[in-house]
Each structure stands twice: as C-alpha cells, then as structure tokens.
Design a binder for these strands. Structure first.
Lengths: 221, 221
DNA sequence: AGAGTACGGTGACAAAGTCACCGACGCGTT
DNA sequence: AACGCGTCGGTGACTTTGTCACCGTACTCT
C-alpha cells in the first residue's frame, strides 16, 4: 500500500521522522492465522506487537476452569502486555489469541528497547498505552464487581455484533466473555427474547431491537 | 541514616552507580501525613514516588458509591500508576491515599524521563513494576469474579492484621476493601465468630484462630 | 445531658452462581 | 438410514451474594 503502517497508528503518526523510519525498517510484517495463541503461560513473545489488521482476544483461564475476557486489541493498537513481558522477562497469567486472521508488525526486543531509549515521543506512546490499559483494567474491575450482568451482557452483545444485526456465538462463550456461568447467560437471554429485543437460534443471536439493548447497556456509567 | 535509600529497593540496588547517584541527588525526600490524598481524580502528581516508609492504599470509588481497594504500595515499592500518569498526562479513576504517615522519595518528571532514556537498567525496573502491577490486576479480576467472599475476607483479615492478633477496622471498611456490602461482611464475620475463629467488638476484630483463617484463605490458589 | 453520627444487627427479598440432569441438534461413521 | 457422540441449550432446586428498609446501641461533640 502507499501509506506506511506507522501513519495509521494514532499515537505513532506524531513521532519524529527518524523514529518512524526506524520502526518501519526494523520491524517485520507477519500474518497470524485465526486461533493462534500469540502469548500465554509458557509462550513468551519475542517481539512487540503492532496490530495492522484483525483482533486479538486477551483472556484469563483460572485453574478452577473459570474463564473471563480481559480485553481485546484491535487494528491500530499495540499490545502493552507483550511489551511489559518483553522488558521484564515475566510470564503472565493471561493468554492472547488471534480472534481472526491477524496482520501485525513485529518489533524485536532490542529495537524496542533502543527506541524507548532514544525517542522521547516513542516513550510517550508506550507509557500512554500502559496508562490506557491500566485504567481500562480499573474500569473492568469496577464492572465485574458492581455491574449487573444484564447490563454487561447487553453491552457485550452490541460490542460483539460490530454493526451486524446478529452475533454468532454460544451461551457458553458469552459466559466466558463476562466471567459468569452459562445458565446465567441463558436466563438473561431468555428475558431479552421475552422482551422482543433478540431472537435466538442455535449458536446465533439476532439483535432485533438494538436500541433497547443499547439503552440497557448505557447504564454502565 | 548511613545507607542511601536506593540500596533498600530490591530493583534499584542493581542499577549502575551513576544512575543511583542521579536518583539520589535529583530526588527530594518528603514526609506525607496519614490521610493525604496523593493522587486521584483531579490530583495529578508531579513526581514519581518511591516509598521509603508507610503504606499507600489505592482504591476506586465508582459513581454509584461503590468502593473497592485495588492494591497497596508498601515501603520499598514505587507507584507505577503515578509513573504512567506522569508520562501520559492522563487522569486516573483511582485514588491513592496515605494509609499511614509516609516518607517517600520524589523524582521530578523530567528527571524520571531522563533516567528512562539513559539507563537501561532503570528502564528494566520501571517496566518490571508495570508488569507486576498488571499481572496483579489480572489476579485481582480473577478473585473478584470467581472467589468466594469468605475466602477473600479471611485472606484480607490476615493481610490487614500484619502479625498483630487484632485488626482495627469496621465492617463498612472491610466491605470497601473487598468491593462488597457491609451486610455481607457482617454475615461472614458472624459465621467466623460462630466457629470460634475471631472475636468481635466495636471497630475491632480479634484473630483468635489464625490457623483456621489462613487455611480458608489459602484456597484462593 | 442531649443531639447527632457511626456502627452493627436483622429480616425479607432479588440477583447471581452452582449442581444435576435432560432433550435436541449437528455431524460424523458405519 | 441408523447409530453414536459431542455440543448446545433448557430446567428446577438450592446456595451464595447483593439490596433495601429499618432498628438499637455506642461513641463524640458541645
């Protein structure tokens, strides 16, 4: 394509020309097929990740078998967790999974470190990403602890639908999204259906009345 | 005292001599009285914080009035949140409160940035702190979402007791610690008392059978 | 001493999580 | 076509947790 990928990152476009050039020349573009475990317990990444296309789901699977989705990384975002891991040599408890085919720019550890050392604006980018991630986690803790599940479910349905009018997912998967039980999801969805907001079929949910769903979801502060 | 404070930080003692010297000469020691709001909505810190003595409680107060303690910073630790905020100019939703009289070394923003730029080992320290904080938050999300409150309460009681045999706190405050309701705490404490693990009086809880409490708390993986 | 507030107790109920079990559907194989 | 099997979703009973309204008592301040 005509435009180099750096320009499409809100935070990176502001970098000095020299820094951009280094990012471009020292990174490699890689295609990652859907379903790939990008990082996780035992899988330590060697590169910092800039997502050009696709989505990465970061989730936690506890030893009790419980599951919860922590956040997603979309095109135009970088994965700070990878960064933290890169520089601190720490394994994390969470795992990152390519939710679709992904195209990403990979910056090797040394280059990353060098960029942080030499470019003040790159430092700004990295720390802003950390800051964003941490405040998002705070928000998430608040929601898990205090938000009603119907509100969270409505919100997640809308988010997952991505302007389509239906979502291809199972009750079990939705439970994993919100960190709750399948039965709870089933009950809530039955109620949504009773109100005429959705239609259900096996492995699929049609958003019939998106407005009402959004109204409920908006309660989440 | 004879030994400079840098030596008492596990992660900082490994720094190059020059970096240590810079940290020492460009930082100022400040005493912060108990109860001071160190940072929070609208209170942006101007310095990075290294805790020499005391404790800082970081908690979130949501608009619904719900409250939850996110983590604590103890002597020998630094506050990465402050750091993130420093470099990203972002307000956070959480607030940090001096839980006791605090002595801390303050490093101004510019000096911090300079240190990150020039010292590779200081970068390592900072990113390790970020990494630790983020993985701790993951752990916390897991606990809030999936852990039984009796287990969490037992754990917190032991943590708060700090080798004393009693804890000076109210049910309401404990509810704020765990992000639950006072009534829930009261019920759990009543049950603990029934089992002979604790004794209660107004604003105080005696840990009678610490071993049993610890046994319950240990279930939290 | 009196007022006001913080603290904790209680009962009733709603929401959410757990457990055990069941039928139906989809998809292979034979 | 018939079978077997795993996934998907439904259900009822029960436990745990959260919410609400209200109460009495202890402490503090003046």
């Amino acid at each position: 394509m005509a435009e180099p990928w750096v320009e499409r990152f809100p935070g990176l476009a502001r970098l000095e020309g020299d820094t951009k050039k280094r990012l471009l020349t020292r990174s490699t573009i890689r295609e990652i097929p859907e379903g790939t475990v990008i990082f996780g317990p035992g899988v330590s990444p060697e590169h910092m990740l800039f997502l050009l296309e696709g989505k990465v789901r970061v989730q936690q699977v506890s030893d009790t078998g419980h599951e919860i989705v922590l956040y997603r990384i979309h095109a135009g975002e970088s994965c700070v967790l990878t960064t933290a891991c890169l520089l601190a040599f720490k394994d994390y408890a969470a795992e990152g999974i390519a939710e679709s085919n992904v195209r990403a720019a990979l910056v090797p550890r040394v280059e990353f470190d060098d960029l942080v050392a030499t470019s003040s604006s790159f430092r700004g980018f990295v720390f802003a990403a950390f800051s964003k991630r941490i405040t998002d986690l705070f928000q998430m803790i608040d929601e898990v602890a205090f938000q009603r599940t119907d509100v969270r479910l409505a919100d997640r349905l809308i988010e997952l639908s991505e302007h389509q009018d239906s979502v291809a997912t199972t009750h079990q998967t939705l439970a994993g999204e919100l960190g709750t039980a399948r039965e709870v999801i089933s009950r809530q969805l039955r109620e949504f259906q009773r109100r005429g907001w959705i239609e259900q079929s096996r492995g699929r949910i049609e958003l019939v009345d998106r407005r009402q769903l959004a109204r409920l979801a908006s309660q989440k502060a």
